[in-house]
């Protein structure tokens, strides 16, 4: 049960951002391209230089090594990248519950032996989510998690994320361009304008 509290995070295009997500809460971000949505997620994951602090429960980001922080606060980038030959090589040692996650996205366990080069864009995007959830993150930062998917697969991903959010009480900060998706899934929603967060009515 960990809340995610963003406390004055800023970098070159953002004025300080403050935002608190209670455990298991889902918050959407939108805004024109170039407004800094992805940069905000990268800053929270500590992938770019930034100022400010982020709290996971009562633990500060600066109090733990960056690799541990990134494991606990998982970022799903808009474009997925792979560094080894097969899907399975990208997963952590302990993959408890991975088959359930795979099944929910319409894969069987055989996919772990697939070579990365034969995956389609949509498959990559869904498997990147599998890879992320296999780390058992306590909070999720999603950047356009369903952008390249057809409606059926999009529904699978949405329900998997909802399931994970409820069972793990993980807070989810989700960048989504799709107003229908934001309405369908509910939760608070913000727009980034001129580097500031504005609540979306």
């Amino acid at each position: 049960m960990t809340a995610l509290r963003i406390d004055g995070i800023r970098h070159r295009v953002l004025s300080p951002v403050d935002l608190t997500l209670i455990p298991g809460e889902q918050v959407f971000l939108s805004g024109p391209s170039g407004s800094g949505k992805s940069l905000l997620l990268r800053a929270i994951a500590d992938l770019d230089p930034n100022e400010g602090e982020v709290w996971l429960g009562d633990e500060a980001r600066s109090s733990m090594p960056a690799p541990l922080w990134r494991r606990r606060v998982g970022l799903l980038p808009a474009e997925s990248f792979w560094w080894a030959e097969t899907v399975g090589e990208h997963l952590p040692e302990n993959t408890r519950g991975i088959t359930d996650v795979l099944e929910r996205l319409g894969f069987d366990a055989g996919v772990l032996g697939w070579s990365i080069s034969r995956l389609s864009t949509g498959e990559r995007q869904r498997l990147a989510l599998v890879r992320l959830l296999a780390q058992r993150p306590e909070a999720l930062l999603l950047d356009e998690a369903t952008a390249n998917l057809d409606p059926a697969n999009r529904d699978c991903v949405e329900s998997l994320i909802a399931h994970y959010r409820e069972t793990a009480s993980a807070s989810v900060l989700w960048v989504s361009h799709d107003p229908e998706q934001r309405q369908r899934l509910g939760g608070r929603s913000y727009r980034i304008r001129d580097g500031r967060l504005e609540p979306e009515s």
Binding site: F81, W83, Q135
Partner: peptide, 22 residues
Amino acid sequence: EARGQIEARLLAGGNWEQAIEE
């Protein structure tokens, strides 16, 4: 050229030496 791969390894919780090992 491999910025995406390196950052993917960092996001997977790897440290900098694992990320640039190869």
